[in-house]
Design a protein around this nucleic acid. Structure first.
Lengths: 346, 346
DNA sequence: TTGAAAGCGCTAACAT
DNA sequence: ATGTTAGCGCTTTCAA
């Protein structure tokens, strides 16, 4: 293509501006204590030469990388068959960008990749990591702890190993579930069923807990395990209907399983919400708005959660975090609020 | 936390193995011409010390980064309100990982970010870029060309500026559209309408072309612009029905607009597919399988497209690409096939 | 086949 | 306030 123009170095800028490399470095890095007239000359030279600092050289001496890894395990992206993934990433990206920090994406393909990720993180290539690990038995949190890289988790990590002090950002799954179930109760429903999510994920467990918070003495027959998929929702709905034909509401652990439940309800000739009220979780738009009837569900601010994760990590890395979120100044895990979105199904 | 253990350097490994730094470097980088006995000693020392090369130091001298940027403009991720985004990224990630290459994700937030991205790419921080730019007037391709970074586009780029020789991977939008429309024709439909996508995107333009390929003399009244959204699909369907009450099929530019069309059809008391057959595009699962009736649509292998993008770029960067895809050995753009998925709607 | 030595471009003491 | 200088950890001629 075009000849690889040799990129100008600090040296070149210094020569052009008639100052020393050190001075240029100071100007470029915004250090104080440089006479304005000189600084201006330097800035102009930078401009004219199109100088861009060599990050490798800088990292070599500062031992900083201005980059963080985002680790997403394969099972997660399957769950994120919706904007979840993109939105969270977007939130993360925004915050990182605002702090001149790059985002290195690490997607894992099953166990085999754990070692690779661990090696990468331990290899001191990034300043920190943002890890999505929502499975109870996920070995990743343990591995990462070993790698000794500052980390923030997306979703409360399972406590497979030492995840005890882990920093994380999670939505209020339990509270959200409570809100949904309370809503069903307020509608006068008395036989409220629950289709759970995949119970190896903390979100599913927490939503189940929320359900039980509101209905501690519920008939166990009204709780049927699902797996967050439409097919799982169908299966569970059938089982529930066969077992408890008198149920008058169902809270599904997510919108996808709710959509499956809805189909079975229609197929059995039951009206929603007249005969059975249905509530979901996630407010996954392409699903929740398209179902018939549209789904009443629990919404979380996904993008904001991503942003908070990044912010938390940046704070932990010192980087000019905003006002401290705790009195002793140490960052703490964050549980973000959810809101009920009323549509036609309940 | 734990004391930051000073990472072992090449020097340390050399000392431990009783050889010079140069030798260790050779072993670590798999260069030939090192006596096996020595190499073994070195490998053991590496093992014992848990040595991991310092990428910054390496890049400083090699001027390689073993990293590529993936640039996704904000409007895209909105369109990718489905697994598209995640899947493509996954395909990219797989291929890059297989070649020990990192993925730096750059998400842009409107025009303001273009400069930032251009600066980053020009800043020689990555070896190449994978860019999603599906808009006809997108300035990004031009900026990137200027940056002089080897690039492969996801989706045929608009020719806003010099994108002429650009390398890209795109699905066969035109051919896919043809397949869908031919299918409707084969069903005996004679008044086939088309709800277009957002015509500032190449995919929408190409799908429209495909439609016209099969029905070159179609009544212009049967073509109504949409915007890839369900709401746009509803609007367009209403307009079409008002204008051409006799239409007996509709090909929507994507599944989301098809779902909107489906709703309007039902609302008007028209049966699908008996009265009006409907076909979509994308096979966006959470949508296509959940509509009533399930959608006949055109599927593309998203993940594979991502993989091909990465492979193309890697080849262009020299990196051990697989067998050459053209006779002169120069990589060429790739158009991937689509397949019709028959469900109940047509 | 192996080692010695010269930087890669930058920052950060330290000196002025 | 500015310049001088010594590396950061690695690859890569060049000699041996």
């Amino acid at each position: 293509m075009t000849e690889m123009a040799p990129r100008p170095t600090l040296e070149a800028v210094a020569a052009r501006a008639g100052v020393s490399r050190a001075t240029v470095s100071r100007v470029v890095n915004g250090a104080q204590g440089v006479r304005e007239s000189l600084a201006a000359r330097v800035r102009q030279a930078v401009e004219e030469l199109g100088y861009v600092p060599n990050q490798a050289a800088r990292s070599l001496v500062t031992r900083r990388h201005d980059a963080v890894a985002v680790v997403i395990a394969e099972p997660e992206t399957r769950v994120f068959a919706d904007p979840f993934f993109a939105l969270q990433l977007r939130g993360i990206s925004k915050e990182l960008t605002a702090h001149d920090c790059q985002l290195v994406l690490l997607l894992t393909e099953g166990q085999g990749d754990h070692a690779r990720v661990a090696r990468y993180l331990a290899g001191n290539h990034v300043d920190g990591a943002l890890v999505f690990s929502l499975h109870l038995d996920d070995p990743l949190p343990g591995l990462i702890r070993n790698a000794g890289v500052p980390t923030v988790f997306g979703g409360r990590p399972g406590w497979g190993e030492g995840g005890e002090g882990a920093l994380y950002v999670d939505s209020d799954n339990r509270g959200g579930a409570r809100t949904a179930v309370e809503h069903l109760v307020s509608l006068g429903r008395r036989r409220i069923a629950h289709i759970t999510g995949a119970l190896d994920q903390t979100s599913a467990v927490d939503r189940l807990e929320g359900f039980k918070d509101v209905l501690p003495d519920t008939d166990p027959a009204l709780i049927e395990p699902g797996d967050f998929t439409p097919a799982g929702g169908e299966r569970a709905m059938r089982a529930l209907l066969d077992r408890c034909p008198d149920l008058d509401a169902v809270f599904a652990a997510n919108d996808l399983s709710a959509s499956g439940a809805l189909r079975v309800l229609r197929e059995r000739g039951l009206r929603v919400p007249e005969d059975v009220a249905v509530a979901g979780f996630d407010d996954m738009l392409p699903v929740a708005e398209q179902t018939d009837p549209p789904l009443t569900t629990v919404r979380q601010d996904i993008e904001h959660m991503g942003l908070l994760m990044a912010r938390l990590l940046l704070r932990r890395l010192d980087r000019n975090g905003p006002e401290p979120d705790t009195e002793d100044g140490a960052p703490r895990s964050i549980v973000t609020p959810t809101t009920l979105v009323r549509r036609a199904s309940a």
